[in-house]
Amino acid sequence: MATAARSGVPAATSRGVVMPRAIPGLVVAINWSALGQVAVVTVVVAVIIAALMSLSNWCLTPAEGATVTTPRKAVGYALMGVMALIVLGGLYLMIPYFH
Protein backbone atom coordinates (compact mmCIF):
# COMPACT_ATOMS: atom_id res chain seq x y z
CA MET A 1 0.00 0.00 0.00
CA ALA A 2 3.01 2.29 0.01
CA THR A 3 2.18 4.93 -2.54
CA ALA A 4 4.80 6.22 -4.89
CA ALA A 5 5.95 9.76 -4.34
CA ARG A 6 4.24 12.27 -6.54
CA SER A 7 6.16 15.26 -7.81
CA GLY A 8 3.33 17.59 -7.00
CA VAL A 9 3.52 19.04 -10.50
CA PRO A 10 0.04 19.48 -11.87
CA ALA A 11 -0.91 17.28 -14.81
CA ALA A 12 -2.78 18.63 -17.76
CA THR A 13 -6.01 16.98 -18.82
CA SER A 14 -7.29 16.61 -22.35
CA ARG A 15 -9.41 19.71 -21.90
CA GLY A 16 -6.33 21.72 -20.95
CA VAL A 17 -7.45 22.06 -17.34
CA VAL A 18 -4.56 21.73 -14.95
CA MET A 19 -5.36 19.52 -11.99
CA PRO A 20 -2.99 18.96 -9.07
CA ARG A 21 -1.95 15.32 -8.79
CA ALA A 22 -1.78 15.05 -5.04
CA ILE A 23 -1.14 16.99 -1.86
CA PRO A 24 2.49 18.05 -2.14
CA GLY A 25 4.70 16.04 0.17
CA LEU A 26 2.09 13.39 0.94
CA VAL A 27 4.18 10.24 0.81
CA VAL A 28 2.85 7.54 3.04
CA ALA A 29 5.64 5.06 3.57
CA ILE A 30 4.54 2.26 5.83
CA ASN A 31 7.03 -0.26 7.07
CA TRP A 32 4.89 -3.33 6.48
CA SER A 33 7.81 -5.60 7.19
CA ALA A 34 8.22 -4.25 10.73
CA LEU A 35 4.48 -4.38 11.23
CA GLY A 36 4.36 -7.99 10.15
CA GLN A 37 7.27 -8.86 12.41
CA VAL A 38 5.57 -7.21 15.40
CA ALA A 39 2.38 -9.15 14.75
CA VAL A 40 4.11 -12.50 14.32
CA VAL A 41 6.46 -12.08 17.28
CA THR A 42 3.61 -10.95 19.55
CA VAL A 43 1.38 -13.89 18.68
CA VAL A 44 4.16 -16.47 18.82
CA VAL A 45 5.59 -15.29 22.13
CA ALA A 46 2.17 -15.00 23.77
CA VAL A 47 1.15 -18.46 22.59
CA ILE A 48 4.43 -20.01 23.76
CA ILE A 49 4.13 -18.48 27.22
CA ALA A 50 0.49 -19.52 27.51
CA ALA A 51 1.38 -23.05 26.47
CA LEU A 52 4.23 -23.24 28.98
CA MET A 53 1.99 -21.98 31.76
CA SER A 54 -0.82 -24.33 30.82
CA LEU A 55 1.52 -27.32 30.66
CA SER A 56 3.18 -26.39 33.94
CA ASN A 57 -0.20 -26.11 35.62
CA TRP A 58 -1.25 -29.50 34.22
CA CYS A 59 1.94 -31.11 35.54
CA LEU A 60 1.48 -29.65 39.00
CA THR A 61 -2.23 -30.40 39.35
CA PRO A 62 -2.98 -33.89 40.61
CA ALA A 63 -5.66 -36.03 39.03
CA GLU A 64 -8.81 -36.88 41.01
CA GLY A 65 -7.79 -38.83 44.12
CA ALA A 66 -4.12 -39.00 43.19
CA THR A 67 -0.94 -37.13 44.07
CA VAL A 68 1.52 -35.50 41.77
CA THR A 69 4.51 -37.74 41.09
CA THR A 70 7.99 -36.38 41.56
CA PRO A 71 8.97 -36.44 37.86
CA ARG A 72 5.81 -34.60 36.99
CA LYS A 73 6.52 -32.00 39.65
CA ALA A 74 10.04 -31.60 38.35
CA VAL A 75 8.76 -31.01 34.82
CA GLY A 76 6.19 -28.54 36.12
CA TYR A 77 8.76 -26.52 38.02
CA ALA A 78 11.23 -26.72 35.16
CA LEU A 79 8.63 -25.15 32.89
CA MET A 80 8.12 -22.41 35.45
CA GLY A 81 11.87 -21.90 35.38
CA VAL A 82 11.72 -21.46 31.61
CA MET A 83 9.03 -18.82 32.06
CA ALA A 84 11.19 -17.07 34.64
CA LEU A 85 13.99 -16.97 32.04
CA ILE A 86 11.56 -15.41 29.57
CA VAL A 87 10.71 -12.77 32.18
CA LEU A 88 14.41 -12.04 32.60
CA GLY A 89 14.72 -11.79 28.82
CA GLY A 90 11.87 -9.30 28.82
CA LEU A 91 13.65 -7.24 31.48
CA TYR A 92 16.83 -7.35 29.41
CA LEU A 93 14.98 -6.00 26.40
CA MET A 94 13.18 -3.37 28.43
CA ILE A 95 16.09 -1.84 30.32
CA PRO A 96 18.19 0.35 28.01
CA TYR A 97 21.23 0.02 30.30
CA PHE A 98 21.78 -3.52 29.04
CA HIS A 99 22.09 -2.55 25.38
Binding site: A34, Q37, V38, T42, V45, A46, I49, G90
Partner: peptide, 19 residues
Protein backbone atom coordinates in the same frame (compact mmCIF):
# COMPACT_ATOMS: atom_id res chain seq x y z
CA UNK B 1 -2.61 -13.46 32.53
CA UNK B 2 -3.21 -14.08 28.83
CA UNK B 3 -4.15 -10.44 28.26
CA UNK B 4 -1.21 -8.96 30.16
CA UNK B 5 1.28 -11.37 28.57
CA UNK B 6 0.03 -10.59 25.07
CA UNK B 7 0.19 -6.88 25.83
CA UNK B 8 3.73 -7.23 27.15
CA UNK B 9 4.82 -9.17 24.07
CA UNK B 10 3.29 -6.55 21.76
CA UNK B 11 4.89 -3.63 23.62
CA UNK B 12 8.36 -5.18 23.64
CA UNK B 13 8.17 -6.39 20.04
CA UNK B 14 6.96 -3.04 18.77
CA UNK B 15 9.49 -0.94 20.66
CA UNK B 16 12.37 -3.09 19.41
CA UNK B 17 11.24 -3.42 15.83
CA UNK B 18 10.69 0.29 15.33
CA UNK B 19 6.91 0.29 15.29
Amino acid sequence: FAAETSAMAAILASSHLGF
